[in-house]
Amino acid sequence: MPSVITKDGVEIFYKDWGPKDAPPIVFHHGWPLSSDDWDAQMLFFVQNGYRAVAHDRRGHGRSTQVSDGHDMDHYAADAFAVVEALDLRNAIHIGHSTGGGEVARYVARHGQPAGRVAKAVLVSAVPPLMLKTAANPGGLPIEIFDGFRAALAANRAQFFLDVPTGPFYGFNRPGATISQGVIENWWRQGMMGSAKAHYDGIKAFSETDQTEDLKAITVPTLVLHGEDDQIVPIDDAARLSITLLKNGTLKTYPGFSHGMLTVNAAVINPDLLAFIKA
């Protein structure tokens, strides 16, 4: 399997599809999933003439189940190891959920001004900060994330069924069209990864303040968010992020869930393509 070794010895699995001389798009997946979560986007963009690259975050998917380094700094550095190994330049970086935080940290720390990043997209992304604090009163209470940790530690397999069956794709909403395949694919991806990485990752996605990352980004950045996102509520995420970005565009989707990239790919993919081509 194609992989790179990071400076601290972690093997990071990646996919590299499409012509090597085509414009590259780098995809950064959400918690607790893998690069497989981008199937609908990677196939779409390869068919539209792009090079699609996606990696499994450390401790996730087919990458090494290492004990440490489950934080935004390491996530971004691991992504850079892939980009550097493939020598990707003027790439578009697209991140979903925790992957959106990874993109923000990556662009702020590794993408400017070296010419590595052309544009960025944050989809249902966790920045600037999910946790409720005195400075972020609209955030979610720590008890919610403590509950995630408790459920994961007690019965990860059941927890990883409950999330996609319920709020992640909005399958708990009246009249929702439920896909058992989507639920089981979410579970499959999650259970491939490390419980330790997933447990530590909850702190990474909920408690990392990325205000300064967003302020540091100068490339054109598209922020996409579902208005019925029950995992990362839009008001304290996308609607705050857009006020911090120097060159940002916000597009929201009434009724769309946190998992809209999968269940609403027919709507989201053309919007991504239009932004990339602009």
Rank of each mutant, 00 (worst) to 15 (best):
S241D: 00
I242L: 02
I231T: 07
F256C: 05
I231E: 15
D235C: 10
S241Q: 12
V263Q: 09
V263M: 05
N269D: 02
R239G: 01
G248M: 10
Y253F: 14
D228V: 13
D236F: 15
G259V: 15
T243R: 04
L240R: 15
Y253H: 11
E227P: 15
A238V: 01
Y253P: 13
K246C: 05
H258W: 00
T262W: 01
L261S: 00
S257A: 11
F256H: 09
A238C: 13
V267M: 06
V232H: 08
T262R: 04
Y253E: 08
I231L: 14
Y253Q: 06
I268H: 10
G248S: 03
T249V: 06
L261P: 00
Q230I: 08
I231K: 14
T243K: 07
I268M: 07
A237V: 13
K246L: 03
L244A: 06
G248D: 13
F256E: 14
T252F: 02
I231Y: 04
T252L: 14
T262P: 00
L244S: 03
A238D: 03
D228M: 06
K251R: 07
L245V: 09
L245K: 08
H258N: 10
I268K: 02
A266F: 13
F256L: 14
P233A: 14
Q230E: 15
A238H: 00
K251D: 11
L250K: 00
G248R: 03
Q230K: 15
F256M: 13
D229S: 08
L244F: 04
V232G: 03
I268L: 11
I234G: 13
D229T: 05
H258A: 02
D228C: 14
L261E: 09
V267I: 12
L245H: 11
L245Q: 00
K246D: 10
K246Q: 08
F256I: 00
T262Y: 01
H258R: 00
I234T: 07
I231M: 12
P254N: 09
D235V: 12
M260E: 05
A265E: 10
D235T: 09
N269L: 00
E227S: 10
K246M: 00
V232F: 10
V267P: 02
S241W: 00
S241M: 07
E227N: 11
K251H: 03
D236V: 15
R239P: 08
N247C: 10
T252K: 03
S257M: 07
A266E: 14
V267R: 01
G248L: 10
A237R: 08
I242F: 04
L261C: 11
D228S: 08
A237N: 08
L244G: 10
L261Q: 11
P254Y: 06
T262G: 02
I268G: 13
A265V: 01
P233R: 12
A265K: 06
K251A: 09
R239K: 14
T249A: 05
P233M: 06
N247E: 03
I268V: 15
E227L: 05
N247G: 04
T249I: 05
E227Y: 11
P254Q: 13
I231Q: 15
I231N: 06
V263D: 09
I234R: 07
S257N: 02
D229Q: 07
E227C: 01
K251W: 01
G259S: 05
S241K: 01
V263K: 04
L245C: 01
G255V: 05
Q230F: 06
Y253K: 12
A266Q: 14
A265M: 07
V232R: 09
V232C: 15
P254C: 11
N269I: 01
T249G: 02
A237H: 08
F256W: 05
